[in-house]
C-alpha cells in the first residue's frame, strides 16, 4: 500500500502550495478596470456605475447607456503601477478598446481605493511613449506564472496521482 503512505505528504504539499498562491495579491486594480470595460460593453444592463461615474464611461463609449451589448470588439488591459502618496492608495492602469466600427481608444485609468474597493476616478491620455505600456505595446502581462506556481502545479499533479493510485489500491484490495 505504498501509494497510500505517500498520499498524506503529497496532499499536504498540494495544500501548502495552494495556500502560498492564495497569499498572492488579490485586489488587482487591473481586474477592476477590465470589469468596468466588460460591464460597459453590456450597455446599461452591465451597470458600469459600480466601477466608475457615468461621465468617465462616456469618455470611452459615448452614449453607452443607449447602446446594444457588444459595442466593444477588443478590450485590452495592461499591468498598472501605484501612484500617489503613502496612505492614499492610487493606481494608474493602461487600457485599449476597439469599437465594432473599428475606432481605437488608448487611455490610462486612474483609480483610488475607497474602503478597500478600487474605483475609477478619471481617465487620461497615455504619455508618449506610453507609461505604463500595454502587452501589445511591449509591456508586461497582468500576471506571469512564476516558478513557484509551476512547482505547485507539479506537486498538485503528484498529489492527484498518489491519491488516485491509493484509491485504486484500496478498491483492488477490497475486490480480492
Amino acid at each position: 500500500m505504498r501509494p497510500l503512505r505517500l498520499a498524506g505528504p503529497a496532499v499536504l504539499i498540494g495544500l501548502l502550495a495552494l495556500t502560498l498562491t492564495a497569499c498572492a495579491r488579490t485586489d488587482r486594480p487591473e481586474g477592476v478596470v477590465e470589469r468596468w470595460l466588460s460591464s460597459l460593453n453590456q450597455g446599461a444592463a452591465g451597470e458600469p456605475g459600480r466601477y466608475a461615474a457615468g461621465g468617465v464611461s462616456e469618455q470611452v463609449l459615448p452614449g453607452w447607456s443607449a447602446l446594444d451589448p457588444g459595442e466593444l470588439d477588443v478590450i485590452e488591459v495592461g499591468l498598472g503601477r501605484p501612484t500617489g502618496a503613502a496612505g492614499e492608495p492610487s493606481y494608474v492602469v493602461p487600457f485599449r478598446v476597439v469599437t465594432s466600427t473599428g475606432q481605437t481608444r488608448r487611455l490610462d485609468a486612474l483609480l483610488t481605493s475607497q474602503e478597500g474597493t478600487w474605483r475609477i476616478e478619471a481617465l487620461r491620455d497615455p504619455g508618449n511613449p506610453p507609461d505604463p505600456k500595454l502587452p501589445s505595446e511591449g509591456g508586461p502581462r497582468i500576471e506571469t506564472a512564476h516558478a513557484a506556481l509551476w512547482v505547485a502545479a507539479a506537486a498538485a499533479a503528484a498529489a492527484f496521482m498518489v491519491v488516485s493510485l491509493g484509491l485504486m489500491a484500496l478498491v483492488r484490495k477490497g475486490s480480492g
Partner: peptide, 22 residues
C-alpha cells in the same frame, strides 16, 4: 483578475493542465 490567487486565466489554465493530465 481581481481576486484570484493566480490572477491570470492563461496561467491558471496552463497550471491546471499540468496538474490534472499526468
Amino acid at each position: 483578475h481581481v481576486s484570484g490567487p493566480i490572477g491570470s486565466i492563461g496561467d491558471a489554465m496552463s497550471l491546471t493542465l499540468v496538474a490534472c493530465i499526468p
